[in-house]
Design a protein around this nucleic acid. Structure first.
Length: 335
DNA sequence: ACATGTGTTGAT
DNA sequence: TCAACACATGTG
């Protein structure tokens, strides 16, 4: 539901807001005036709060805690920031100040893809830095370049490429055939040193140690995955740790499967990951064994709903921890 | 000094 | 979940 339709800015009155209460209690002539002059005007927009300097803050709540979306010069800007966050955080259920994005409108669909192929923390970060529109436009440019040009922009991508799902041209970085320990109980993926140092360089701290960090990847369905990436001195290895086991589980990764890594070829250097498609013959084997399409059936049974609720799959206690971390933007880089 | 964002509370 | 309010913290 769109608030604007019910009680939009034009329909709302900016009266009351407690000022009359102050006057009722006024016995002299100074106190009420002082209180009234201190009082900040409340906003007509959801998720928008006044700031002492006349600017406007935007905030959204998730699991009992506030996520600050930044400050803006005017209410409407703050309200638009709230709307973007609400649609990223709450999907179709989001209540927005202005007309919500619609899957049917092509331009809206592009923004929805843009929103949902980024983590919540990234969206919040863009809103706080006021770079959301810039990045959205860049993303749309990259998309049209990837889909209208069959030539120089993306020579390796023919039509029918699975990468079309995310609409972004990519350059292949490397593949890794996962080992038994990569998909076992160690909950980590070893990135071959050669590839790690070439493509995922780690910052070195003051003491010379390599700083771990959180990295976002997008898979072929547009889902965002966040892994901790660090260097283990004990084994002299670069590894993906936190978040990796969930990827293994959801992708049904088995030893010997190949995981491919890509980087966006466009202006935004985003990272992509997915399991290389298994041979069709293998899929037929599964179907013959069980008489159903196991992949689709599994998907439905986990979600308990339909495809739009893919994120529900990850709504586990573990994810809640991850998102608590993600909420704190100062922790975008792990310690 | 001033802007930004958080701690906290009470309401819905 | 939400915004109001006070004020601590960040920033130039």
């Amino acid at each position: 539901m769109c608030i604007e339709e019910v009680c939009g800015p034009a329909a709302l009155q900016r009266m009351g807001s407690g000022a009359s209460t102050v006057i009722d209690l006024d016995h002299g002539d100074g106190a009420a005036t002082e209180a009234e002059s201190r009082k900040l005007p409340s906003s007509q927009y959801k998720g928008v709060v006044p700031q002492p300097n006349g600017r406007w803050g935007a905030q959204i709540y998730e699991r009992h805690t506030r996520v600050w979306l930044g400050t803006f010069a005017d209410e409407a800007s703050a309200a638009r920031a709230y709307d973007a966050a609400a649609q990223r955080f709450r999907g179709r259920d989001a209540v927005t100040n202005f007309r919500p994005l619609s899957e049917s409108d092509p331009s809206d669909a592009a923004e929805l893809r843009f929103l949902h192929s980024r983590s919540k923390a990234e969206v919040v970060d863009m809103l706080r830095k006021h770079t959301y529109l810039d990045e959205l436009h860049q993303s749309k440019r990259a998309f049209s370049a990837a889909t209208t040009s069959s030539g120089a922009a993306s020579p390796s991508l023919g039509s029918g490429s699975p990468h079309e799902l995310t609409g972004v041209a990519r350059e292949h970085l490397f593949d890794k055939a996962v080992t038994p320990s990569d998909v076992g109980k160690l909950n980590r993926l070893v990135i071959p040193k050669q590839y790690a140092e070439r493509h995922f360089p780690l910052e070195t701290s003051g003491t010379g140690a390599l700083n771990g960090m959180l990295i976002n990847f997008v898979d072929n369905s547009g889902k965002t995955w966040r892994f901790r990436y660090s260097y283990w001195n004990s084994s002299q290895s670069y590894v993906l740790t936190k978040g990796w086991s969930r990827f293994v589980k959801e992708k049904c990764l088995k030893a010997g499967d190949v995981v491919e890594f890509y980087r966006s070829a466009g202006p935004d250097k985003r990272l992509f990951i997915d399991r290389k498609q298994r041979l069709v013959a293998a899929a037929r084997h599964v179907v013959r064994l069980f008489g159903v399409n196991l992949v689709a059936e599994h998907h439905v049974s986990i979600n308990g709903k339909r495809s739009r609720d893919v994120e529900v799959v990850t709504a586990t206690p573990q994810l809640f921890k991850k998102q608590q971390v993600a909420r704190n933007l100062n922790n975008l880089r792990a310690t």
